[in-house]
């Protein structure tokens, strides 16, 4: 089986140069130091945001989830026993809160969608390119939405984010074998969904056309 994993380091969260096992502000926050909480937030907000955005896909409710993650982290910090790295615990909370948000959103069909406006286009392309990319990502995450949240999380973390199976196991507190099993079935389901999804056809034409143009014009 060929994997889609990128060779990126597993999330910015894990690559912080001074990511000690237990950063000093954690102990100070547990003692009730408001500035330590704010320091914790400043140091980790972008990394949490990236993980939330990766798990959610192109949706506009990521800001709400980021806020919810930190509220949950603050409230739960007193119960952080320091048996794992702080960053691992933070990832676990982030993944759990995000998955809970996804589940809650799925269970409210009568109330419609959370989308209230288009998510902003990535700024490294023109607005048109950004909008087209958003459309493509929306098509991809629509397929990923068919997975149960457990399989979805493992698939995204492993195949899109490049996180290793043992790190995912630590993050989600499940055996590595369970990670691999979920990944196996997630891939099967994703590929089967792709094979039968007609909405991918225009994307196929678009991407193949772009690839041909790129080869011809060298960008």
């Amino acid at each position: 089986m060929i994997m889609v994993a990128s060779n990126a380091p597993p999330l910015g969260i894990l690559v912080s140069a001074d990511d000690d096992t237990h950063p000093p502000y954690v102990a100070r926050a547990r003692a009730g130091d408001a500035r330590a909480f704010q320091e914790l937030y400043r140091n980790h907000r972008r990394d949490v945001a990236r993980l939330v955005a990766r798990l959610l896909g192109p949706r506009t409710d990521a800001e709400d989830v980021i806020q919810e993650v930190f509220i949950q982290v603050f409230r739960s910090l007193v119960s952080f026993r320091g048996e794992s790295r702080f960053s691992t615990w933070l990832h676990r909370v982030t993944v759990n809160v995000t998955l809970m948000h996804i589940r809650a959103a799925r269970s409210r069909p009568a109330l419609g969608t959370e989308l209230t406006h288009e998510p902003p286009a990535p700024d490294e392309h023109s607005p048109i390119e950004g909008a087209a990319r958003n459309e493509r990502m929306r098509a991809l995450y629509k397929i990923l939405d068919t997975l149960s949240e457990k399989k979805r999380a493992v698939f995204i973390l492993h195949d899109l984010e490049g996180t290793q199976a043992n790190q995912i196991a630590t993050m989600l507190e499940i055996p590595v074998l369970t990670v691999r099993t979920r990944l196996f079935y997630a891939r099967k389901e994703v590929y089967a969904a792709m094979a039968s999804d007609p909405t991918l056809e225009p994307i196929a034409r678009e991407l193949q056309g772009a690839a041909a143009a790129s080869e011809g014009d060298a960008l």
């Binding site: 889609v4 994993a5 990128s6 990126a8 910015g12 972008r46 945001a49 990236r50 955005a53 990766r54 990521a62 800001e63 980021i66 998510p119 902003p120 990535p122 700024d123 990319r133 493509r136 990502m137 098509a139 991809l140 397929i143 195949d159 899109l160 984010e161 490049g162 994703v190 590929y191 792709m194 094979a195 039968s196 999804d197 007609p198 991918l200 056809e201 994307i203 196929a204 991407l207 193949q208 690839a211």
Partner: peptide
């Protein structure tokens, strides 16, 4: 037809894996 869709899906996965989510535009 399935081959074409899977090629597209494969390219989508590549694109998603290659580009980190943009977080600078958050409020």
């Amino acid at each position: 037809a399935a081959w074409g869709r899977l090629r597209a899906g494969s390219l989508l996965l590549d694109e998603a894996a290659d580009e980190a989510p943009a977080v600078d535009d958050f409020d």
